[in-house]
């Protein structure tokens, strides 16, 4: 099942990029055209996706279908949502405030204690600020 999903995604990916590539200007000589190289790759990907789907269907007939493991999927999704929240927070709040909140929330989500979360959030944020921002001169958000 997951191979079929992958194949369908690849075909959708190919269609999208193909349609966009058709809007590129044509050059007098085909080898100068900006569309030819990506379109060649898209054709290759399309055929590879078809092979993947075909081999998956053949395997499905031979054996039991593969399914996507959804064990504990909610945690990675929560972490991803937290990361998006951190990005939004960085727009609106100062780096130090945003990072302390982000680290604390993430630490709690991963099973850490309240006290440990607060201490770790403050220490990590200040550590990052001093090491990267002050010593290594890395631009911080």
């Amino acid at each position: 099942m997951k191979d079929i999903l992958t194949g369908v995604f690849c075909i959708a990916f190919c269609l999208f990029f193909w349609v966009v590539a058709t809007t590129f200007p044509q050059a007098p000589k085909i080898y100068n055209s900006p569309a030819v190289y990506p379109q060649s790759l898209i054709i290759l990907l399309f055929f590879l996706a078809i092979i993947l789907i075909a081999s998956s269907i053949r395997q499905k007939i031979k054996s039991s279908p593969q399914v996507i493991q959804s064990r504990d999927l909610y945690k990675p999704l929560l972490i991803s949502a937290t990361l998006v929240g951190y990005l939004i927070l960085l727009f609106t709040a100062h780096f130090l405030t945003a990072t302390i909140i982000f680290v604390f929330v993430l630490f709690r989500l991963l099973g850490g204690s309240w006290k440990g979360g607060i201490a770790f959030a403050v220490l990590l944020t200040i550590g990052e600020y001093l090491v990267f921002g002050s010593i290594l001169k890395v631009p911080l958000p």
Partner: peptide, 27 residues
């Protein structure tokens, strides 16, 4: 416990991707 490193790595990932060209688009 790996949670300490996991949290730190995600925070570093955000700082690291911002610092490539100093913009939020990269994050």
């Amino acid at each position: 416990p790996k949670r300490f490193l996991n949290v730190a790595i995600l925070a570093f990932a955000v700082i690291g991707s911002y610092s490539v060209r100093n913009n939020f688009f990269d994050i």
